[in-house]
Amino acid sequence: MSVVRALRRAVAPVRRCAAPLLVEQPTVAAASGRTLSAAAVGGARPAPLWTLSRLASTAREVSRESDSGLLQVLKAELEHERKTYSQPKDVSRGPPKPWTLTDKPGHADIILRRSYGEEDIAVTCVYQPDAYGERHEDDEPQGSDEDDRDEESAACVNMTITVNKGADNPTLEISAASYGNEISIDHVYFWEDKNSRDALYDGPNFLQLDEELQAQFERYIKARGVNKDLVSYLFNLLEDKEQREYMRWLQKVEQFVRQ
């Protein structure tokens, strides 16, 4: 027997064994109602259509029930807040003159502006509930001096005061906080280039300045209207803004879930 014929005999059985895998198996799978991929993985059958339909229907029912429960609570909470809300008179009257207020719904910050000679003054306060909101029992040890503070003195308003003398001129920026009626300056920045601040020297530690220099900076901002009257208004305004933004949040979330 020639070598070629011997090779042909050896290969022929392989071809006959391999052929059913490529030709006959799809036919068997089709006859049994299964796809080729299902037969190839050991004959696993897909779930009947009625089972899949029932599962989808159950999932929709659970989703509707959960959405209905959430909508009910959101609506009840919103109605309660609207019934109990009333804007304080000093907030409705607006800021102390000559300040003007910018307060956009949905924005966390409020901005007060005024002119002082050739200067443009802006005071920006960001809504931060933890900064002036309720204090927790674990915040201070029992018997500490903090226990004697009332709610107003325990509250805090953080503010950024900017002083400009023209759009293209340098900016003096003062970071400050108010506890009760006291205003405390944290830092004084002087920005020569308002568009690039990363590599600029931002000023010394304020508490390390000479005490007289610190006092003069405090007089500087008070002369521009950042005083007790403004701080008192800010406390009431931010508390009112918290309430208004919470009601707006409830309304927007309810609308989203209802869609």
Rank of each mutant, 00 (worst) to 15 (best):
Q87E: 05
E218V: 05
E254K: 06
G106T: 10
S53I: 03
R149C: 06
R82Y: 08
V126H: 00
L74G: 00
G43P: 12
K241T: 06
S63D: 09
E146D: 03
L200W: 07
E218N: 03
E173M: 15
N195V: 02
L70T: 13
V163D: 00
Q142R: 02
V14H: 13
V62I: 12
V14A: 15
L71M: 11
T102R: 08
L78P: 11
A39D: 13
Q255G: 13
Y179L: 14
F256W: 05
V3P: 03
V188G: 05
W191M: 09
Q251A: 14
V41W: 01
K241Y: 10
F256T: 04
M159L: 04
V253A: 11
E134N: 14
Y246K: 08
S63V: 14
T100A: 01
E79P: 14
Q208L: 15
Q259S: 14
H136M: 03
A38T: 02
E182D: 07
G42V: 04
K252T: 08
A155Y: 12
R113H: 11
A39V: 12
K252C: 13
W50L: 11
A40E: 01
E211H: 12
V126R: 00
E211P: 12
A215G: 05
R45A: 13
I185A: 06
I110A: 01
E79N: 15
W50E: 05
K241L: 13
G225W: 02
P204C: 03
K222Y: 09
E173I: 13
D109C: 06
T162L: 12
V4Q: 09
